[in-house]
């Protein structure tokens, strides 16, 4: 669930490194081809229209949501991911928090964000968003020179706020529909569009090629670092979410959908897409 939350909050992208990264990329692309958006998915791939005939016959409403035609399989994989999270990731994150003081953990998170710059920059440009591309470049320069190679977010402190972009978001800006909801083993909540985006980002990330001939431990260390750091960030949030949720699967799916839409829109509120407030007297 650590990886899951990373996607949910959109801070970092996951994968494996070296040869296994490439293999994962191809597997993901191949798997994606299997998951074709079903006919019930509308043009934007994110909205399905539910038209219940209610008691009063008046409340036919549009419920935003991700189409989930594979819910049965998704729930099984979700339960497995959750078990791995509770048995492995969460305890490791707790140890990480105990061993490393907050400033050091912050430094690690900053460095991992910094290392992701090439992927974000490429996608800023592919989306034609030169303003954000400029921010990414300024951040990289400032944090490399004055932020001890990215350990300190000097640029953020000066008002150049961090953002991340990925190829899944780029595809969304090109109008590619998300397709149905998929819970991928280990990777967590996703969609075919998001999975393709991950694969492309892995291939586009220089770290994939820099660590190509490294030992297994070295090659997986960036992924491990990102996963543990992100799980540490999410400890309280996920605990509270799990405790307060009537159906954890539904909660995470909805959080993923809303957060992913927010990422695609760079955090902007799309007023026209909000449901109306009921007129209650």
């Amino acid at each position: 669930m650590g990886v899951l939350f990373i996607d949910m909050v959109g801070m970092r992208d996951k994968g494996v490194t070296g040869l296994s990264r490439l293999l994962a990329a191809f597997c993901i692309v191949a798997a994606t081809a299997i998951f074709i958006a079903p006919p019930s998915t509308l043009a934007d791939g994110n909205r399905i229209v539910i038209q219940p005939v209610s008691d009063d016959g008046l409340d036919e409403i549009e419920e935003p949501g991700l189409d989930d035609p594979f819910e049965g399989v998704n729930r099984v994989i979700f339960a497995l991911n959750d078990t791995v999270d509770q048995i492995v990731l969460r305890p490791v994150a707790l140890v990480y928090r105990t061993v490393l003081p907050r400033p050091l953990r912050k430094g690690v998170a900053n460095f991992l964000n910094h290392a992701r710059t090439p992927v974000t920059l490429a996608n800023d440009i592919l989306q034609g968003d030169m303003k954000r591309a400029e921010t990414t470049m300024v951040r990289f320069f400032l944090n490399t020179v004055a932020g001890f190679g990215g350990l300190r977010d000097i640029a953020g402190e000066a008002g150049w706020e961090y953002h991340s972009e990925d190829f899944g978001q780029t595809l969304a800006t090109y109008g590619v529909p998300s397709g149905p909801y998929i819970v991928a083993p280990i990777l967590g909540p996703s969609t075919p569009r998001h999975l393709v985006g991950r694969a492309v980002d892995i291939l586009a990330n220089p770290w994939t090629w820099i660590l190509w001939d490294a030992t297994t431990l070295e090659s997986i260390s960036p992924t491990l670092g990102e996963t543990i750091s992100a799980r540490d960030d999410a400890l309280e949030t996920l605990d509270a979410t799990r405790e307060g949720s009537p159906d954890y699967y539904v909660t995470i799916k909805s959080l993923y959908r809303q957060n992913r839409e927010s990422e695609v829109n760079n955090g902007a509120v799309l007023e026209e897409e909000l449901p109306d407030i009921p007129d209650v007297r």
Partner: peptide, 13 residues
């Protein structure tokens, strides 16, 4: 964090 809480609550309820 990009999540409307009432919309989230509606999904859960």
């Amino acid at each position: 964090l990009g999540v409307w809480l009432a919309i989230q609550q509606r999904t859960e309820f």
